[in-house]
């Protein structure tokens, strides 16, 4: 399965989803108006990945600027990963945030409250 690579722009994050290693990364800014269009690409990739996933999937999310609909899309991705976990796969969410960025930390903890997934918080 091909690695999903999307370059970062001023409005949208860098995406690097590698099926060979199970390492998935969303990093940068995410405040494009049409979040659905952007994140649907990621969800489609995940749908394929879930057919033959790596033994452990680690999603790292590291965002500085975002809009509210980004969290809706991330929650949607987390729901997919939750399905993966329910199928008996190992899933970890690494929530990375800049030192002192307690807002980003709060946003991670909110998402963790909604999902039965393991979250690790990484201060950058």
């Amino acid at each position: 399965m091909e690695t999903l690579t999307i370059e970062q722009t001023e409005l949208s994050p860098k995406v690097l989803f590698n099926a060979e290693t199970g390492k998935l990364l969303i990093q940068g800014k995410s405040f494009m108006e049409n979040t659905i269009a952007f994140y649907s690409t990621l969800e489609s990739w995940l749908d394929d990945y879930m057919k033959a996933p790596y033994e452990k999937t680690v999603l790292q999310i590291y965002l500085s600027y975002y809009n509210s609909s980004t969290f809706r899309e991330i929650l949607s991705i987390l729901m997919k990963l939750s399905q993966l976990q329910n199928q008996g796969n190992n899933v970890l969410i690494e929530w990375a945030y800049d030192k002192k960025d307690t807002l980003a930390l709060k946003k991670g903890k909110e998402l963790a409250m909604l999902m039965k997934l393991s979250f690790e918080y990484i201060e950058k």
């Binding site: 405040f31 600027y65 002192k100 807002l103």
Partner: peptide, 22 residues
């Protein structure tokens, strides 16, 4: 100085501006 406060400000600017454009 206060990164979290700055990020809250940026988030508020983005959100209220996108309310206008939407």
């Amino acid at each position: 100085e206060d990164l979290a406060k700055n990020r809250k400000l940026i988030y508020s600017i983005i959100e209220l501006s996108q309310n206008i454009s939407k």
